[in-house]
Amino acid sequence: STVKVRLGHLEVTLHNVSEEDVRELRELWKNGADEEDLRRWLEEWKK
């Protein structure tokens, strides 16, 4: 499914993403990950 995730002022649209992935991303964000960390996660996730 396609999910729009809003993290601060960063809005990311993920395609074919699982609930688990979204949860993981939100956890990262809650734990103080900055945009760099999130971008890195997204790069990994896209592979």
Rank of each mutant, 00 (worst) to 15 (best):
N31H: 11
L42D: 00
K30I: 11
T2D: 05
E43D: 12
E24Y: 11
E36F: 07
E24M: 11
R23H: 11
E27M: 09
V17W: 02
E36W: 05
L42N: 00
D21W: 12
K4V: 15
H15D: 05
V17E: 00
E20A: 13
V17N: 00
D34Q: 10
E35D: 09
E36R: 09
N16E: 04
E43L: 07
K30S: 13
L7M: 05
E27Y: 06
L38D: 00
R26Y: 14
E35G: 04
N16L: 04
W29A: 11
H9K: 15
N31V: 07
E11I: 15
K4D: 04
E44Y: 07
L7E: 01
E19C: 08
S1H: 14
T13E: 08
R39C: 05
R26T: 14
R26S: 11
K47I: 12
E20S: 12
H9A: 14
V12R: 01
R26K: 14
G8T: 02
V17I: 09
L42M: 09
D34K: 13
E44A: 14
W29H: 09
E27A: 10
R23M: 13
E20F: 07
E11L: 12
D34H: 12
V17K: 01
K46H: 15
E24V: 13
L28D: 00
A33S: 06
E24A: 14
L14D: 00
G8I: 01
V5T: 01
V3M: 05
V17F: 03
E11H: 09
S18M: 07
R23S: 10
S18R: 10
L25N: 00
D21L: 08
K47F: 11
R23Q: 13
W45M: 06
L42T: 03
T2V: 11
E43R: 07
D37L: 13
S18Y: 04
R39P: 01
S18I: 04
N16Q: 04
E44R: 08
A33E: 04
E35A: 08
L38A: 02
E27P: 00
S18P: 05
E24I: 12
V22K: 06
W45Y: 13
K46F: 15
T13S: 04
A33W: 07
L10E: 14
L25P: 00
W45T: 03
H9L: 12
L38G: 00
E24C: 02
E27F: 06
K47N: 12
N31P: 03
D21F: 12
S18K: 11
D37G: 09
L25V: 03
K4G: 03
R40K: 13
V17P: 09
R40C: 04
L10T: 13
V12K: 01
D21V: 08
L10W: 14
K30R: 12
V3Y: 03
L28R: 04
R40M: 10
L38V: 12
K47C: 03
E20Y: 09
H15R: 07
L14F: 04
V3D: 01
W29N: 05
V3N: 01
T2W: 08
L28E: 01
E19A: 13
R6S: 14
E19Y: 08
L38E: 01
E19H: 09
K46P: 05
D37H: 12
T13N: 03
V22S: 04
L7K: 02
G32T: 04
N16W: 05
E36C: 05
V17L: 06
R39D: 03
E44C: 08
T13M: 06
H15G: 03
S1A: 14
V3H: 03
H15V: 09
V17Y: 02
W29S: 08
L25C: 01
E35Y: 11
E24L: 10
K30F: 10
V17C: 03
D21A: 13
K30A: 14
L10Y: 13
E43I: 08
W45E: 01
N31R: 11
L28S: 02
L38S: 01
L14I: 11
K46I: 15
R40L: 11
E44N: 14
E27W: 08
L42Q: 01
H9V: 11
W29V: 15
W41V: 02
E24Q: 14
G8N: 06
R39Y: 11
V5C: 03
K46W: 15
A33V: 09
E43T: 08
T2S: 10
E19G: 06
K4I: 15
S18V: 04
S18A: 06
V17D: 00
L38P: 01
V3S: 01
D34Y: 06
E27R: 10
R23G: 07
L10K: 07
R6K: 15
T2A: 04
D34N: 13
L14N: 00
E24N: 11
S1W: 11
E35H: 07
V3Q: 02
S18H: 07
E11P: 01
W41T: 01
R6F: 14
K4P: 03
E11V: 14
V3W: 03
E20N: 14
K46N: 13
W41R: 02
R39H: 08
V5P: 00
L42R: 00
W45A: 05
W29D: 04
D34V: 11
R39S: 07
W41H: 01
D21H: 14
L38R: 01
V5F: 15
T2L: 05
N16K: 05
G32H: 08
D21C: 06
V17S: 03
S18F: 04
H15N: 07
H15F: 14
E11W: 15
R40E: 09
R23L: 12
E27T: 08
K46S: 14
G8V: 02
L42Y: 14
K30D: 13
K47G: 12
K46G: 12
W45L: 08
L14T: 00
L38M: 06
R6L: 15
W45D: 01
V5Q: 00
K47A: 13
D21S: 13
G32M: 07
N16I: 02
N16P: 02
N31M: 10
V5W: 02
N31C: 03
A33Q: 04
V22A: 09
L7Q: 02
E43H: 08
H9Y: 09
E43P: 00
V3R: 02
E11Q: 09
E44P: 01
K46E: 13
W29C: 06
H15M: 08
R6P: 06
K30E: 13
E20T: 11
R23W: 10
E24P: 02
R40H: 11
T13F: 05
A33M: 11
E36G: 12
N16Y: 06
G8F: 03
T2Q: 05
E43Q: 09
N16H: 09
S1D: 05
L14E: 00
R40N: 12
G32I: 03
T13Y: 07
G8W: 02
H9E: 15
E43V: 09
W29M: 15
